[in-house]
Nucleic acid binder design. Structure first.
Lengths: 166, 166
DNA sequence: CTTCAATGGTTGTAGCGACAACTAATGGAA
DNA sequence: TTCCATTAGTTGTCGCTACAACCATTGAAG
């Protein structure tokens, strides 16, 4: 059976979505790199740790909550550890596992970079949309993630965008 | 004045959007790499050329339509040229400029990889959404692109004012 | 108490993209 | 005509990510 091509309306939406996924990561990286010497993924990792009990998470749990592979996370945490923002230690209960803990310097780093990052997120995305569009976007991304990452941890997710949480 | 933090609803939407922009490019790359030895960006470049008159575009026009920097495009086209899928030649009218033209091999490559790619796009995104959600997503991405890429090709400005049009 | 597949994580390497520095051509002003 | 800011594009280098290969530990079957 032949390919079911995209209609003009579908194509129009697709082209815009591609532009967003192509441009947004670079824009987030650029601001955080310039102001805090962090990539967006670095920030995300630190933010997840800052919300965890004892500021500690197992590598696998951290990988799940950041939608990254374990290999990628391992490299990133290695660099963050070299900068003194994170420390690793073997998990006593399961000696295969590694725990990653946010250091005090790491916590300070998150606190100082959060305001500028949140301002960027508002400026580029949140404040560009109406409350209704935000609702629509949440449902749309939910539906896409069901295909893209079935069984992923996109629910019950906490993150450091509100520093009053700790 | 203090930072205006994200509300729980805003955060919930943002987290999902981040997951999508983090996962989608990799998923598109994986399928195209596996089946056609192309990155998604490679495919996009070839596809843009395939629809241009004479299968030819100036580097700057190609960069605009793919939302890439000229530097990135230059590297990519260099690799595609080495593989015989594209060829470059100086523009006669403006000797600063370079034209990129899709070769017959390049055209064959696009034709053979298009069905699998479109199937992936449907499977991951288009078919996961209702027609209404597709409309919503187009307007949402439009609004975001106004912030992310002001004056970009997505707003139709370039189309109406492109002197080479028609 | 072995065996062995599954789990948890690390590391080497190759390739891609960002950034900055660079060359070259154009077009307008003095 | 000369000057020079702007436009067009290329290239070198560095950092990050994907992929695959790898090692260690666990838990359950036999």
């Amino acid at each position: 059976m032949g390919t079911k091509w995209l209609t003009p309306e579908e194509l129009s939406t697709w082209v815009r979505l591609v532009a967003v996924v192509e441009l947004l990561p670079g824009a987030l990286d650029a601001q955080l790199r310039r102001d805090s010497a962090l990539t967006h993924f670095d920030y995300y990792v630190l933010a997840m740790l800052s919300e965890a009990p004892e500021r500690t998470l197992r590598m696998t749990a951290l990988a799940d909550s950041t939608t990254a592979t374990l290999a990628r996370l391992s490299h990133v945490v290695q660099r963050l550890e070299a900068r003194g923002l994170v420390e690793r230690f073997p998990c006593p209960q399961d000696r295969r596992a590694t725990n990653a803990r946010l250091t005090d310097d790491g916590m300070a780093k998150v606190r100082e970079s959060a305001p500028g990052h949140v301002e960027t997120v508002r400026g580029l995305v949140i404040d560009a949309l109406s409350p209704r569009q935000l609702d629509q976007l949440r449902e749309i991304t939910d539906a896409i993630l069901d295909r893209l990452d079935p069984g992923g941890a996109h629910n019950g997710f906490r993150q450091r965008y509100d520093p009053d949480r700790d």
